[in-house]
């Protein structure tokens, strides 16, 4: 029982954490929270199933194609729903524009793909029981993403540019950084991370349109817990949520586990609006 809680809790936790990182990566360059984050996780599974099952691609090309498609969705998000509303950030129009885009993505998938869960095949076929690949794959993807992001932010020029923009947008622009291109790049990167979450979690969650709103919410909880823009916080929050949720599933089961998660979410937020690892709010006047 405990092994099962740990395996499935860490696995779904890794998927939630990756969606949390998706939120954060989008936020870092644009100060915008996007409702499309969860839909990207859903699309990762759907594109993965499309390329692997329906079109019969081998694993690596299918993964690359999935990430590329998601990245395109990310860039479209930036162009359609983010860039036009950036100049009036304080009116929070981004909540509406990204919600609209997320609904469009979801409806489009429901109509053009399927409203029923579609299969996602085994990739390596390594491991069984609690060591089945459907459990460890998301965890590996999460670890790889974190290491990759650390490397990107610390060791590469473009990563430094991301950090500069995240820390001080105006100063970065004054330095002559191509702010708009960097923002598009970060949306593509964020979308690819979301897609990877869906792909790695595909065997667990299947290629299912209803995963979109589900991941939207459960992927946001780690961000709220870990503090906005804090990737390590999101990962800790994601695993905590996954374990809490699966433990609730095992112990109280059924309908009330989602109620339990939601109640925890509200209580933590009201007690610590900045998240457990968050920083204090910015100047207002």
């Amino acid at each position: 029982m405990l092994a099962s809680i740990l395996a499935s809790g860490l696995a779904v936790g890794a998927v939630y954490a990756l969606i949390g990182v998706t939120y954060n990566t989008m936020f870092s360059t644009s100060r915008v929270m996007s409702f499309t984050a969860g839909q990207l996780g859903m699309l990762g599974g759907v594109f993965g199933s499309l390329f692997l099952v329906r079109l019969g691609f081998p694993v690596i090309p299918a993964l690359i194609a999935t990430l590329a498609c998601c990245a395109v969705v990310g860039v479209v998000t930036e162009i359609l729903a983010v860039r036009p509303v950036l100049k009036s950030l304080d009116q929070h129009l981004y909540v509406l524009s990204t919600l609209a885009l997320a609904l469009m993505l979801q409806q489009l998938t429901a109509i053009e793909w399927s409203t029923e869960p579609q299969p996602f095949p085994k990739i390596f076929g390594i491991g069984s029981g609690v060591f089945d690949e459907k459990f460890w794959l998301p965890i590996v993807a999460c670890a790889a993403t974190l290491i990759g992001l650390e490397f990107l932010y610390r060791r590469t020029l473009i990563g430094h540019a991301f950090v500069a923009i995240a820390e001080d947008n105006f100063a970065a622009r004054a330095l002559g950084l191509p702010e708009r291109n960097l923002r598009m790049a970060s949306y593509a990167l964020a979308a690819a991370i979301g897609g990877l979450a869906g792909f790695a979690g595909g065997q667990l969650l299947l290629a299912f349109v209803a995963n979109g709103p589900l991941l939207n919410f459960y992927g946001f909880v780690p961000v709220a817990l870990g503090g906005l823009g804090n990737n390590r916080g999101a990962v800790v929050g994601g695993f905590a949520l996954g374990l809490f949720q699966q433990a609730a599933n095992f112990l109280v089961g059924g309908i009330f586990s989602s109620v339990a998660v939601f109640v925890m979410f509200i209580i933590v937020l009201l007690a610590a609006p900045q998240g457990l690892f968050g920083s204090s709010s910015a100047r207002r006047v």
Binding site: M33, H92, V95, L99, F217, F220, A224, G254, I255, F256, S258, V259, F262, F265, I266, L269, L270, P273
Partner: peptide, 29 residues
């Protein structure tokens, strides 16, 4: 509405969304 007094816009939107799900779940249970 209470979270609106403390939370940022997006957080508030999310929490109302969560409430909507919970109420239906309770009606079922």
């Amino acid at each position: 509405g209470l979270p609106a007094l403390r939370l940022r816009t997006f957080y508030f939107a999310m929490s109302t969304l969560g409430f909507a799900t919970i109420v239906t779940q309770i009606a079922l249970a």
